[in-house]
C-alpha cells in the first residue's frame, strides 16, 4: 500500500502540489523575492558594482585608458609611505572632527533659538537655510575671494580700521595652516543649516506638556534642556551627526573650488587627493586605493549610527546617557 503511494507521488505531483516552476510563480515567499529583484538589481548596478570595481582597481596598476595588472597591495604599501597621503588622512580626520563638532554646537544652539516664538519666524527659518541652498561651488568661490591674499575683504577692512599695516596682508590661502583653518571655516558655514533645521524639526516633536510639567516641578531652563529636550532629541542627533560626519569626511567641491588641495598639498582631503592622483595624474589604481582607504572610516561612522539607533533607550529617551 505504502509502496504504491510512493510510486504514485514519484510519477507526478499530487493534486494541489504545484511544480517547481509553479512554485516560483505563485508561492508567496517567492513572490516577495520577485518584488525585491528590481530594487536589488538597482543596488547591485549602482552600488555593489562600482564599489567592487573600485576595490578591484585599488589592487591593480590601472591607468586611464588602460586596464591594469593585479599588483596586490602595492598601492597601499606605496601610500603608507607617502607623506602627502598621510597628511591628507590626518587632515581629513581633523577636518571632520572639528567641523562636525562646531557645526553641531552652533546648529543645536540655532535650532533652540529658532524654536522660540520669534517675530517673522518662517522668514528667519528660511534665511537660515541659505548657506545650504547656495551651490557649494558658488559659495566656495565667494570664500576664495574673501580669503584671497591680495584682495581679501577682511584684510582690506582691517587695514581701513588701522589694525593692520597696508604692506603686510594676511596670507590666508597661501599659508598652509591658515588655509586649513579657512576651509574648515567654510565647511562649517555651509553645514550648519542642515543640522539646525533637522534638529529644529526634532524639537518641534517634543510635547510642550513635558516642559510645563518640568516647569511646575521647578526645573530651570538648563534643567529643561538637560532632562527633557536633550534625551528626546538623541535619536535625531544620532542620525544628523552620522550624516554630517559622512558629508564632511567626503567633502570635495569646497576644497577643490577654493584651494585644489594647495598650498603645498596642505588642504588635500582624501577625496581630493584621490581625484588628483586618479584622474588628473592618470593613476586610477592609486586613486582607487585612496578612495578605498576612506571606506573603513565611513563604515565606522555608519556602524556607530546603526548600533546607536538600535538601542531602545536612545529611541525613546528613557535614559540619558
Amino acid at each position: 500500500m505504502a509502496d504504491a503511494a510512493i510510486a504514485r507521488s514519484d510519477a507526478r505531483p499530487a493534486p494541489g502540489e504545484p511544480s517547481a516552476w509553479q512554485q516560483l510563480k505563485v508561492n508567496r515567499n517567492w513572490l516577495g523575492f520577485w518584488f525585491m529583484v528590481p530594487a536589488m538589481a538597482f543596488l547591485v548596478l549602482f552600488l555593489v558594482y562600482p564599489l567592487g570595481k573600485g576595490l578591484w582597481m585599488s589592487f591593480t596598476d590601472a591607468r586611464i585608458g588602460r586596464e591594469g595588472r593585479f599588483v596586490g597591495l602595492e598601492n597601499f604599501e606605496w601610500l603608507s609611505d607617502d607623506s602627502d597621503f598621510i597628511r591628507a588622512l590626518i587632515f581629513t580626520l581633523v577636518f571632520t572632527f572639528f567641523a562636525s563638532a562646531v557645526k553641531f554646537a552652533i546648529g543645536l544652539y540655532l535650532a533652540l533659538l529658532l524654536n522660540n516664538n520669534l517675530p517673522f519666524k518662517a522668514f528667519i527659518r528660511s534665511v537660515v537655510l541659505i548657506p545650504f541652498i547656495v551651490p557649494t561651488v558658488l559659495s566656495a568661490v565667494a570664500f576664495w575671494w574673501i580669503f584671497d591674499t591680495q584682495f581679501s575683504v577682511i584684510t582690506w577692512g582691517l587695514v581701513k580700521l588701522g589694525i593692520l599695516d597696508r604692506g603686510s596682508p594676511i596670507n590666508w590661502l597661501g599659508d598652509p595652516f591658515l588655509a586649513q583653518c579657512v576651509v574648515i571655516f567654510a565647511n562649517i558655514w555651509r553645514g550648519i543649516p542642515f543640522i539646525a533645521i533637522t534638529l529644529l524639526a526634532g524639537l518641534q516633536t517634543v510635547s510642550p506638556s513635558l516642559y510645563e510639567a518640568a516647569t511646575l516641578d521647578g526645573a530651570s531652563k538648563w534643567q529643561n534642556f538637560r532632562y527633557v529636550t536633550y534625551p528626546l532629541l538623541t535619536p535625531i542627533i544620532a542620525v544628523v551627526m552620522t550624516f554630517s560626519v559622512l558629508f564632511t569626511f567626503t567633502d570635495f567641491q569646497l576644497i577643490w573650488a577654493m584651494t585644489r588641495g594647495g598650498p603645498v598639498n596642505a588642504t588635500h582631503l582624501m577625496a581630493t587627493l584621490s581625484y588628483q592622483r586618479g584622474i588628473l595624474g592618470g593613476n586610477l589604481g592609486e586613486g582607487a586605493a585612496i578612495a578605498i582607504s576612506m571606506v573603513p572610516f565611513l563604515l565606522a561612522a555608519i556602524m556607530f549610527s546603526w548600533f546607536g539607533l538600535q538601542r531602545r533607550k536612545w529611541q525613546q529617551g528613557e535614559n540619558n546617557d
Partner: peptide, 12 residues
C-alpha cells in the same frame, strides 16, 4: 615675492 603665491592659480 608678494605674499600668497603658494596659493596662486593661473588667474591670480
Amino acid at each position: 615675492f608678494i605674499p600668497g603665491t603658494a596659493a596662486w592659480n593661473d588667474s591670480n
